[in-house]
Structure formats: C-alpha cells, structure tokens
Write a protein that binds this DNA or RNA. Structure first.
Length: 785
DNA sequence: GTCCTAAATTTTTTT
DNA sequence: AATTTAGGAC
C-alpha cells in the first residue's frame, strides 16, 4: 500500500489535503500589497511560528517585488550576481511560511544536483527546521524519474527500470552499428548518439522524428538505429537519460487523467536557469503549468551556455508570448563584482546580438582593473598563476576563494602538475567522478544485475570480471541467443545452460555464474543492501581479483570499493542507492574544509563565486573553441562569448586573464593567437600586466609592455616568439642506467619526492608524498638520500 | 581464451 | 602524450 511517490504524502493527511489544497489557509484572495503590509506589520500571515516578514528585510526592491509578485506567469530576468537564487528561494519559503502552499505543492526545478541542494539549504534556513520536506525540489532528471517510475507501465516499462549511463549507451550504439553492418568510420557511434540525443531533447520518439530529418541524418542510419535502440531498451526495461524526461512528457501529454493529477498537485512551479531549458523540458513545464500558469522562471539570457545540449535560448526570449499576461521583473543590481569587473564583462557581452538586455550596476566603488597577461607557453602560464596564488596565500588570502576556470578539461593537467610540484592544495570540481571509476562501476553492475536481471549492460560488464572463462565467444553466443529469443541476456543464459550450444567448460562457468546471481537475489530479501554488497563482492571473487592484483593502483581500488560499500548505508535500500548513483554520479564531497584552490571548467563554475579568478588559455581555437565555431558558426561564437561572460562574472575582486603564444595541443606545438574576446574587452577596465612583480625566468622574451599600452599592441609584442629551441629540454636527461630498489627514496621533476614500491625493469611504481602513486620510467627520477 | 604489441583516436562543455 | 582498440601470436 505504501507508495513512496504518493502525490499527496506530505500534507497533514491524505483526505484533508484535497480540501486544503483548494483553500490554503491564507489565500490568493488577499491582495498582495496588503498581504505584504500585514506580513511586515507583525507576521499575522505567518504559519508555524515563522516570521515571513523578516524574510523580506534584506531584499532590495526588485527582489522583494519578485518574492511578492502575484500568482501567474513570472519571469525573473536576473543578471549574474544579482541574487536570483536568493529571490527564488525566498519566494518559495515565503509562500510556504504564509500558508499559500504546502511544501509538497511546490514544484521547484533545477538543472544540477548542486543547485538543488543549495536551494534546499537556503529554503531550509529561511524556514528554520519547521518545514524540511520539499519532496518535489530536484533536477529535471530526478523529478522525471520519479514521475516515470510511478507511471512506467504507460510507456511500456516497469517501476523497476534501470537508468542507462552514457558510457554503456555508446558501447551499445557501437554494437548495433556492427550488427547492422554500418560503416562505423563513416558514421561513428558518437555522431549517431549525438543525433539521437538531439531528437530526444526535442521529445521525438522514433516514429515522431520529422521525415526529412529521418531520411537525411546519417543517410537514414540514425533513425534506423534509434528505432532498434529504443525497442531494445523497452525489452530490457531500461531508460537512458534522455528517456527520463521524454517519457515523462509523453505520459503527461497522452494521459489526461495523470496530467490533471499533477496539475492539481503543483500549485506553484518554479524553475531555475530557465535559459538552459531545451524543448522537452519546455514541454514538460508547459504541460504541468497549463491551467493555473503559476510558473516562475528565473534566468539570464547572457548565461545560456548549454546550446550544445539542446538548450533553446529562445525559450527565455519567448517567455512573455508563451504565457499570456506574464510579468517580467529584472534584477540588475549586482552584489558580487567590483565595477571594473562588471564593466569588462558587460563590454564583452555587448558584442552579442538578440539579447533581452539588462544593465547591471553596482554601488561598489573599489576594485582593480582586470589583469591581462601574455605568456610564452602553457607551462609558463601555469607557473605564473601558481606564483600569483602563492603570493595571495602569503598575504593570508583564503585559498577557497581562489579559482582557475578553464574552457575544457584537458587544460587542467598543467595546473595540477604545477600545483603538485608547489605543494599547493587544490580541488578539481566536476573532475573524474567517483562513480565513474571502473571498480565502482563493476561493483555497481553486480548490484544492478541482482536488482534487475534484465539489465544486459550490467551483465555484460561483469560476466567475465573476474575472469571466469566466459570471453567473447561465449558472450557472442549468448547475445545471439538472446536476440533470437527476444529476451534479455540473463534469461537467455538460463536457457542456454540447459542446451549444448556452448562448450562444456563455458557452459559450466556460465551455470555457476547464473546460479550465483540467483542465490544473491534470494539472499537480497533477507539482509541489508550493505551486507548484500559485501557478500556479493566477496563470493564473486571480485575483491579477491584486486587483492591478487600486483599493480600499484590495486590497493587504491580496494579502498574505493570499501568507501562505496560504506556509503551505501546512507540509503534506505538497494533501489534508492542505485537511483542515486545513476542520477547524481557525484559522491557527496566529504571535503574536509581544508583550504584549497578550485580548478574547474567554465561550465562547472556557473552559479559559483570567488574573490579571485584566473581565466587562462584565452587563445583562438581554445577559447572560443574551434569546434564550436566550426559546427555552430555565429551561434556557437555567441555561446562562447557568454561563457567568457560567465567566467568574468564569477569574480568578486580580481580577474586575471591570460594567454600563451605557444600551446602544446595533443602532442603538437601550436603557434597560438590571442582570443578575439581579449580585443573585445573595454580598454578602460583592463590592465596589461607583464609580471612586473614576478621575475620571469624566461629571458629571451619581450618584457617591456607598459601599463598604458593598448591591449592589442601589448599582446602583439609580448608573446610573439615561437617554439624553436624550446623542444630541447627533455633530451638532456640521457638514459643513465641506475639500479633502483624497492623502498628507495627518489625525486621526480613533476611529482616531487616519493619512495619506490615496485621495480619492473626500467619502469618504477612510486608512491609520491604529494602526488600519490604513479608509474614512471626510471630515466625520469633521480636518487635522493 | 588470454596476453602482448601496434595503431588509432582523443579533447568541449553535462544531466 | 596518453589511453583505448584491434589484431596477431601463443
């Protein structure tokens, strides 16, 4: 009887909720201005001892207007640093505190889990502990997943469906390409995946794709694969990321009764980062908001940076047409950045066309101009930034308030290398994720298979990990058997072990594997999911496999698995845990509050702020990224420019933009040109900085740009030298044969000091004091007493 | 079926 | 440059 997703579980009582839903304690009947006065006067409007009026005290006029605006469609056009999350959270908290809505009647949607968490915390602190639950606050994906589980049968799934991750998805596309005899050189799986993803972002099932697109994209192969793929997912009872939202929209669209239920349920809909919504997400909102149109969207057209994921900036530009009678409130007072930073960012974004147009202003007067620095190459850039950060650190600046924002992940490496050498503590945000590590995915695959035997992707992953003698041939046989029977691999395997299609050795191996899984499934009902995980990882031999592994990373992997198992205790049951890892991917950061510099991509930085921000790699081809220009033209360029805008506006006090004259990109030296965005920065707010305060070890470089030099001239002069003569550096350390022994202490140019753990010919596995375990060639280290 | 070597491919951004 | 994939030897 207990349905975890019961729509009306949170209000005081199920029956009562119906009535109260229609007549909230203090209602829309009272004009809002009056209501606000009441609230200010003494909090009569408040419920549960919370002082709703106090929430308004620290807001500016526009923010207060946003909180108090009448029901109906409302667009908050909020520039960077204008307190949009604050306004949105307060609007929700205010509605709850004044009794206009129960927490369970508020649908609040964000894009990232991080944003959802932050909003939850903000609302929580506004409301105190009085109202903790906000069951319908989450990301589009997590909320859709909930809706989908509740009505899965309407789209041919069960409530236990698994969620497919991008990795397995791509592997499966490759399989289909092969089995359909499609040339994967001409039509790479990535391309097909991209096309299908775009269709899903627009909400098209295979039979709904416009015919012209269906026949032209990838010569018709895309639609062919999409159709096969979607059918297969259905038989396996699996949904991918795109499906979560697409299926939810189809359910709402095709089942009036279900839609009505949710429409009635959600009295208030609030959406964060509206500029990033794509077509399906728009439909999703549109359907749910239909009727009362009680929807409040917050966004900034200048921060739309997810066009490549299907985001339609038009959604926000069109808002007032979409929702008749919509009201727009602009939040323009910026509380974050200094005037120079704000002016530089505003000047840059002016080059974009088709903006809604906001004028950010601040009453701050302090602050320095943006620093611009040309460097010889990427290594020097990393060194100079490292030096700057050390200087800030010595000046007692908090490292947590310093960040380096890069265009793409590969740019992070040289900074990590440099920071390790310096011993400078740093954290990578959105870097390699815990749940994406191979050992964690293996362990989870065991659990997925037990939970949901039709999860072919899980079975394929672990059927031969550890080695059971079930290699490609056995898997091939199994796959074709499954296809012939039109069922999943697990069921096919159960049949296959009763026939003699497989050789005896393989058949026995398969049989004992299947029996083991069946046994674990039974045990699952009689123990906690944590105990189950321990049992399975032990009995399967998976733990033993890593224990027997002599490679230096094996102990770390075992450590990760241990961490994973212990984290499972935070979840109610196995299903809850699996749902979490599929949707969240990020392990809860148990960051020990230590001071650390943050390193991340510009995309990951959205919504964050720092005192000091470094923006390296502003070179044509890197930023704006070449691919973006090639594939999206002007549209792509404008999105890159918005990304630059996002980067600059993260800073409260200090921005340092830099570029290198020579850049090593995947092994080739490129003679780089400074980014066009540098030219677009207004000169009055930029200071060309040639490291007057930090002596540069590169002597053959021009070092004379003055503060007054216009930006253009400065960069044309400074980093003009190219790479000749540079590539000699590594050949100097000729291979002298030295004997190394286990336990010996050594020094490495990049990783610092460490001791040898394993000697394998001229290869050494070394545990570095700061850099952790690495495999290194003996030529690159020297002995150290 | 497994292991080793050579070649190809990667690097835009994420739920 | 580094990691993944394919092919060939055993």
């Amino acid at each position: 009887m207990s349905d975890p997703f019961d729509l009306d579980s949170t209000p005081p009582s199920d029956e009562g909720a119906e009535v109260k839903d229609d007549a909230p304690p203090l209602g829309e009947a009272v004009p809002l201005s009056q209501q606000a006065q009441q609230a200010r006067a003494g909090g009569e409007a408040s419920v549960g001892g919370i002082d709703a009026a106090a929430m308004l005290d620290d807001l500016n006029d526009a923010q207060r207007e946003a909180v108090l605006a009448e029901d109906g469609a409302l667009l908050l056009l909020a520039g960077a640093g204008t307190g949009k999350t604050r306004a949105l959270s307060t609007r929700i908290a205010y509605k709850i505190a004044t009794g206009q809505a129960y927490p369970s009647q508020v649908l609040a949607v964000t894009f990232t889990n991080k944003a959802a968490l932050e909003m939850r915390q903000r609302i929580g602190s506004l409301l105190g502990s009085a109202v903790e639950e906000m069951p319908w606050l989450g990301t589009f994906h997590s909320l859709s997943s909930r809706i989908l589980r509740r009505h899965a049968e309407l789209v041919g799934l069960t409530d236990k469906f698994s969620i497919l991750n991008a990795d397995d998805q791509l592997r499966y596309f490759k399989q289909i390409l092969k089995s359909e005899n499609i040339d994967d050189k001409r039509y790479p799986a990535r391309l097909i995946a991209g096309i299908i993803d775009r269709w899903k972002n627009r909400g098209y099932y295979p039979d709904e794709v416009p015919t012209s697109e269906a026949s032209h994209f990838a010569n018709g192969h895309a639609i062919q694969i999409y159709s096969i793929y979607q059918n297969r997912l259905k038989t396996l009872d699996i949904a991918d990321f795109g499906d979560l939202i697409m299926h939810a929209v189809h359910i709402l669209r095709d089942h009036k009764d279900v839609l009505a239920e949710y429409q009635k349920k959600f009295k208030h809909i609030l959406v964060d980062e509206y500029q990033d919504t794509n077509v399906v997400q728009y439909l999703w909102l549109r359907l749910l908001a239909l009727g009362h149109s009680n929807i409040c969207c917050v966004g900034d057209d200048d921060q739309s940076i997810y066009g490549w994921r299907g985001a339609e900036i038009e959604n926000i530009l069109r808002f007032e047409k979409d929702f008749a009678g919509a009201k727009t409130i602009k939040l323009e007072q910026n509380y974050r950045s200094s005037p120079h930073i704000l002016a530089a960012a505003s000047g840059l974004i002016k080059s974009n066309e088709g903006r809604l147009g906001k004028t950010l202003w601040t009453d701050r007067k302090d602050g320095e101009k943006i620093f611009l620095r040309g460097c010889y190459d990427g290594e020097e850039e990393a060194r100079l930034i490292g030096d700057d950060i050390e200087a800030h650190h010595r000046a007692k600046r908090d490292l947590n308030e310093i960040s380096i924002l890069v265009r793409a992940g590969f740019q992070m490496r040289e900074f990590e290398d440099r920071f390790i050498t310096l011993g400078l503590p740093y954290r990578v945000i959105g870097g390699p994720r815990f749940y994406e590590r191979a050992e964690i995915r293996d362990a989870n695959a065991y659990l997925r298979l037990i939970q949901h035997p039709s999860d072919d992707f899980a079975l394929e992953r672990i059927i031969n990990r550890p080695r059971r003698g079930l290699g490609n041939v056995a898997l091939q046989t199994l796959t074709s058997a499954a296809r012939a029977m039109e069922t999943n691999l697990f069921q096919a395997a159960q049949t296959l072990i009763t026939t003699d299609e497989l050789k005896p050795a393989a058949r026995n191996a398969l049989q004992s594997f299947i029996r083991a899984v069946e046994r674990w499934q039974q045990r699952a009902t009689e123990m906690t999911h944590t105990e189950l995980a321990e049992l399975v990882l032990d009995e399967s031999g998976y733990i033993a496999m890593w224990q027997a592994d002599k490679s230096p990373e094996a102990p770390g992997k075992l450590e990760n698995i241990k961490e994973m198992v212990s984290s499972m205790g935070d979840f109610e049951n196995l299903a809850g845990y699996l749902e979490h890892i599929a949707l969240v991917m990020e392990a809860q950061s148990n960051d020990s509050g230590d001071e650390k510099v943050s390193l991340m991509t510009l995309h990951a930085a959205k919504g964050l702020e720092f005192d000091i921000v470094f923006l390296p790699g502003w070179e044509e081809g890197v930023f704006p990224h070449q691919r973006s220009l090639d594939e999206e033209g002007t549209r792509g360029l404008e999105e890159e420019r918005r990304l630059a805008y996002v980067g600059i506006t993260r800073a409260k006090q200090l921005v340092t933009i830099s570029f290198a004259g020579n850049r090593n990109l995947h092994g080739r030296w490129i003679n780089a040109t400074p980014s066009r965005f540098i030219d677009e920065l207004p000169c009055d707010h930029v200071q060309v900085n040639d490291d007057a305060h930090i002596p540069s070890p590169i002597t053959h470089r021009a070092t004379s740009a003055t503060h007054a030099t216009p930006i253009k001239e400065a960069w044309q002069r400074s980093p003009a030298q190219t790479i000749e003569g540079k590539a000699v550096s590594s050949s100097a350390s000729a291979a002298q044969s030295v004997d190394y022994k286990r336990g010996e202490r050594v020094f490495h140019q990049k990783f610092g000091y460490g001791h040898i753990e394993v000697v394998d010919g001229n290869k050494l596995a070394i545990a570095f004091d700061k850099a952790g375990r690495k495999k290194v060639l003996a030529d690159y280290v020297e002995k150290h007493g």
